[in-house]
Every structure is written in structure tokens, then in C-alpha cells.
Design a protein around this nucleic acid. Structure first.
Lengths: 151, 151
DNA sequence: TGGGGTAGGTCTACTATAGAGACCGCCTCC
DNA sequence: GGAGGCGGTCTCTATAGTAGACCTACCCCA
């Protein structure tokens, strides 16, 4: 059912550049979950609800500022929910909303791909980096810097 | 076979934060293809090979600099290949490599999800933006500048 | 004969975004 | 009575992305 040709067929239905993000679901959604931390948050929350500092410990190299912002954005998009418990130091728990839950399946296939192919990717990188300059990028004869616009 | 619980099971095998990117395939790969343009490039190339300026026209709002850089990165990772034809103004064609082809399937499920759910996401956004301040973020008594709401 | 267009880029300046790390009130524990 | 956890916010700086001028080389058109 889900092979490359059906994927291609699907892609062809989306305008990649003619429209703004609002008109392109792909860009709209990818811009959100495609950032550095969102998927990590969702993966963590997929296992169980987490509190703020649990998430901070789980991901460790996210700054609190980005943690707050990422969680806020995910909440705004309805992928996670935020629950405040009126304990003495109020504790906050984040958990996946149904919408976020529905994302797990497509995410899992991506994660699986990443796992399967990251060896190949590293190999390709090593190969690429090991062959520097065998493909000249441009035939420009290094005409030195003409002075640019002097605003 | 691919339901949420299997996804969760899979996620639990990856360390989210304890390791560097090199040790975590998920972060490693997501950092690459999760940027603003990579998936768009791959979607365009999934349909047919493109030349540089065809890609620029297809995506329209990418700068040439980012187009060059994105293509270079994808080439480096072995997802696409670059072919130079020695025509009078040399033309360059980009096409998917097998590795990039193998990414289409997981990407398609993500795109499908995006298409299916972006209505819900927009609704959630509108709901969130429409209810400002009903969830006090912190019990801080409004010291001085409150005129920003985190945006 | 030179003006404009195409091709595949590079270069520089500017700006938006991410990251670091201090700080906050409030609480508990030692 | 100082340390540390809680859930954040604030400011500053470093980094990444953007805009757009520029480049060589070629063609067509008048």
C-alpha cells in the first residue's frame, strides 16, 4: 500500500512553492514538528506523561527557554496538553493529546528509517568528505573581490 | 503492524538526551531532514529529476544560498546525486539516490498525516490564541513589563 | 555592438532565531 | 539559614538563515 510510487503520487498534489505556508499542509506542519526539539518531546511524551523538569532531564541539552517554547508551541497546535496541579510548588504535567498520539505512527516509520539508514548516511558523508574538490563547483577563475555597493 | 504502541516501544529504545547526536540516529537524521527545505527538495525530486533553477522555481521562496547548501547537504548524506552535463552553459541535474528513494515511504506517511490533521491543528491554534491568559503561566505578580506574551 | 536572458552558483550584509545562564517566588529538607 | 527543586522568564550573545548583488560564459535579438 505505501510504496514509493504512491508517495510520489501523493507529493504531486502539493504545491511546493507557489503558495504560502497556510496553503501548504506539508510546509505548515513540517515547519512545526520539523524543528530541532519537537519530535524529541513527542517521543518522550509518547512513553509516559512528563513534568517540565523531567523533560529537561530527559533531553538534557535543551535550554529551558527552548523547552518552554517548544512545549508551548506543541500545546498551541493541540499535540500535547498541559495540566497544572496545585501542589505546594505547583507541578505541571505534559502529556500527548489525541492529535499528538495520531502522529506517533508516521513518526515511527521515520524513526525506523533513520535507524535503518543512518549507517548508510554516515558512510555517504565520509565518502563525500573524503573526496574534496574532485567535483569543481564552478569554473570561476577567482576574479578577486570587486568592491561591493557602498550603501 | 505500525500502531501507536509499537511506535512507543520503538521510541523507548532510543536515548533522547544522554548521548550526543552521533549516538542517536533519530537526532542525527532528524536534524538533517527536519530543516526547513530538505523535505521540500526531496518531494520535488521524487517526482522527477530537477535542475538547479527548476528547483528554485519550484520552491520559489528559498534563497539561492540555501538552495545550494541544502542540495549540498543532501548530496553529502547520499540522499540525492548531482550530475553535471558539459553543455555550453553547463547544466546540473539533481536526482534522488536510492537512499533518498527509501525515504519516500516514511515521508509519505508523515505528509499524509499532515494533510489529514492540519485542519485540526489550525483549529487548535485558533482555540489557543483565542483564550489568552486563562491559564496563568506562572504565579508571578506581574512585576513590571507584562506587555509581552512570549511571541 | 550591446542589451537582456539563462545557467549555476558565490559573496556580503543584515536579521531572526537559538542557546547560555542569571534570576524569580515559593516551598522543603537538612 | 543555606541549598536545592519547581516551572518558568529575562537578557545577552552566537549562530543560522535571508536578501540580493555579483560572476563567467553563452545565446538570441535588434
Amino acid at each position: 500500500m505505501s510504496n514509493a510510487s504512491s508517495a510520489i503520487e501523493r507529493f504531486s498534489r502539493y504545491p511546493l512553492g507557489e503558495s504560502q505556508s497556510v496553503h501548504c499542509p506539508v510546509r505548515d506542519v513540517l515547519d512545526r514538528i520539523g524543528d530541532k526539539w519537537s519530535m524529541l518531546m513527542i517521543m518522550a511524551l509518547a512513553m509516559r506523561p512528563h513534568r517540565f523538569s523531567e523533560l529537561h532531564r530527559a533531553v538534557h541539552d535543551i535550554s529551558k527557554r527552548m523547552l518552554t517554547q517548544t512545549l508551548r508551541d506543541l500545546e498551541r497546535d493541540g499535540l500535547i496538553t498541559r495540566h497544572v496541579f496545585p501542589t505546594k510548588p505547583p507541578s505541571v504535567e505534559y502529556r500527548l493529546a489525541p492529535l499528538g498520539l495520531s502522529l506517533l505512527d508516521p513518526m515511527a516509520s521515520l524513526v525506523e528509517w533513520a535507524d535503518r539508514c543512518h549507517g548508510d548516511i554516515h558512510a555517504a558523508r565520509a565518502r563525500f568528505d573524503g573526496t574534496p574538490g574532485d567535483v569543481p563547483r564552478q569554473a570561476v577563475p577567482a576574479r578577486s573581490k570587486v568592491h561591493k555597493k557602498m550603501a
